[in-house]
Design a protein around this nucleic acid. Structure first.
Length: 491
RNA sequence: GGCGGCGUGGCCAAGUGGUAAGGCAGAGGUCUGCAAAACCUCCAUCCCGAGUUCGAGUCUCGGCGCCGCCUCCA
């Protein structure tokens, strides 16, 4: 059964079957960060979504080429570097590295290219020259602007009628003179104290939108499959990108435009003045599991606003634990299962698989797909409890969870369990969990001994003591399992 | 003012016009020395009003509420 992937195209405002330009290959351009500060969880909502999208594409058999720009020169990076009396490169390197570290913590698969704006000045210059040759760009006081009037499709993506654009104080504050208020800067003339490049189009630096057009063209060609970004970038950034690219080449820029909605915090937009701009580091320092954060960010459909709360993060954490619990259970018990079952396991697997494929293919409906996945968690647990699950079914179900985890990336990456068997009063018991200190392990074994001696007062005391050290115990028929309530260490 | 989105149980959140997935939390039960984990049972009629329809959370219209964009912004 093949379910065709459909994506909601912002360009047409409709759900369309996804067909790449080149069979089985997909080129994706994602508007990346401007590295003037640490990224906040809103940025990571976007990045987790892009990651899920690329993984769904791969899961569907496509070869993905993802390009994400790093904007390392603009008003804010220049202002930041100036404030700290640092070179622009030193200033942006710090935030660029921090960004990559965070992506890694969130298990985001790296893009194929992370082009920097400052390393593509030449490509941008060439693009401006093409635009000038077509009469779409003009120079004024050392800066170069795009002539919006000459690009009739301007406003088509965002469906904003340029004539109705309300002028705000910000425009009036623009220090550059232009023919028309709507025109935007392609190249900003050099200013005292600002970094600049001496090029064929003059001494200066690139405007904000130019790098995306130049770099997508370089790495993905003039027309590519999917362009993604945050909703707020639709206007003016993407509109300007289209004007620059299509204006220069005459070809359409992207087949599909996908826009991710914002993350809000406690019902309101994040802003520095409200002090609700969480960074990933902050959440990790507070002891939250990056995988739970990933789950939370991925669990709401990308076209809906996601309201970030600590309560939600706690719920995400519990959901991930439930999933891992079942997978661990399957890994541990396959050999002890009957060869024949009731068939319920097989049926549940098929239901989940079909539902999952259909749902995730429907514009990346992650919450719906997770629903199907958890239905299988429940059915599997139930079958195991009843002794109804055949070993073949268990193997197939386990393989399925690992397969869909190629999309979610929530499961432990490698076997991190320490297993030790201990003989107490002639009974062989196992102790199992992720690595803990020898001291803690001694407490675990001491408690096992106390239980075997039926000294429950001592056993409970030891259990409490471990709990205070962040280790919770779970007595099973075979022995004891411990859980370390870590923070940020489940990777 | 222009453009767009959202409003489903205590919280989060799916849902092709046919009588409400899933997760978290809660209550009761099974299991357990007690717990934990797991399982079983229970827990909504979908912001309001009108309309279309044999039938609407799902379509239309009108309200109410919340949010986003309109040249910093993922």
């Amino acid at each position: 059964m093949v379910t065709k992937l459909h994506l909601y195209n912002s360009w047409t405002r409709s759900l369309e079957p996804f067909v790449p330009l080149e069979a089985q290959k997909v080129g994706v351009y994602a508007c990346g960060p401007t590295v003037y500060d640490y990224a906040h969880i809103g940025n990571f909502r976007f990045n987790v979504w892009v990651d899920v999208m690329r993984r769904v594409l791969e899961w569907n058999g496509y070869e993905v080429k993802l390009v994400m720009n790093i904007t390392d020169v603009d008003d804010k990076t220049i202002a930041g570097a100036t404030r700290l009396k640092q070179s622009l490169g030193d200033y942006t390197a710090r935030y660029t590295e921090a960004f990559f570290d965070d992506l890694c913590r969130l298990r985001i698969a790296p893009a194929e290219h992370y082009p920097r704006a400052t390393e593509h000045i030449d490509e941008m210059v060439k693009l401006v020259e093409r635009l000038k040759a077509r009469g779409l760009a003009y120079e004024q006081d050392g800066s170069i602007y795009f002539r919006v009037e000459r690009f009739p499709d301007y406003g088509k993506l965002s469906r904003l009628d340029p004539r109705h654009l309300r002028s705000t104080g910000r425009i009036e504050g623009d220090a550059y003179d232009k023919e028309n208020i709507r025109d935007f800067a392609l190249w900003k003339g050099a200013k005292e104290g600002e970094p600049s490049w001496d090029t064929r189009i003059g001494l200066g630096r690139p405007g904000w939108h130019l790098e995306c057009s130049a770099m997508s063209m370089k790495y993905l060609g003039e027309t590519f499959d999917i362009h993604v970004g945050g909703v707020d970038l639709m206007f003016p950034h993407h509109e300007n990108e289209i004007a620059q690219s299509v204006g220069a080449t005459g070809n359409s820029l992207a087949q599909f435009w996908l826009h991710c909605d914002h993350l809000i915090v406690n019902g309101t937009k994040m802003s520095k003045s409200l002090g609700n701009q969480y960074t990933l580091k902050q959440l990790l320092d507070e002891g939250h599991d990056p995988v739970a954060i990933r789950y939370l960010l991925a669990s709401v459909h990308y076209r809906k606003q996601l309201n970030f709360t600590y309560e939600g993060l706690g719920q995400a954490n519990a959901a991930v634990a439930r999933l891992r619990e079942l997978v661990l259970r399957l890994e541990k018990c396959t050999e002890g299962l009957p060869s024949e079952g009731s068939g319920e396991g097989k049926a549940a697997l098929q239901r989940a698989d079909e539902g999952f494929r259909e749902t995730i293919a429907d514009d990346l409906n992650t919450s719906g797909a997770l629903g199907h996945m958890f239905s299988l968690v429940k059915a599997t647990n139930a079958a195991l409890d009843c002794g109804n699950l055949a070993s073949g079914e268990a193997t197939a179900i386990l393989a399925w969870f690992h397969d869909v985890d190629r999309i979610w990336a929530l499961l432990p990456r490698e076997q991190q369990l320490v297993e030790r068997t201990i003989e107490i009063k002639g009974a062989v018991l196992e102790a199992i969990g992720i690595p803990i200190s020898d001291d803690d392990f001694e407490l675990v074994t001491a408690r096992m001994q106390a239980r075997a001696d039926r000294d429950f007062v001592a056993a409970d005391r030891l259990r409490d003591r471990l709990l205070k050290r962040g280790i919770s115990l779970e007595d099973t028929a075979k022995g004891v399992r411990w859980h370390v309530d870590v923070s940020g260490r489940s990777g």
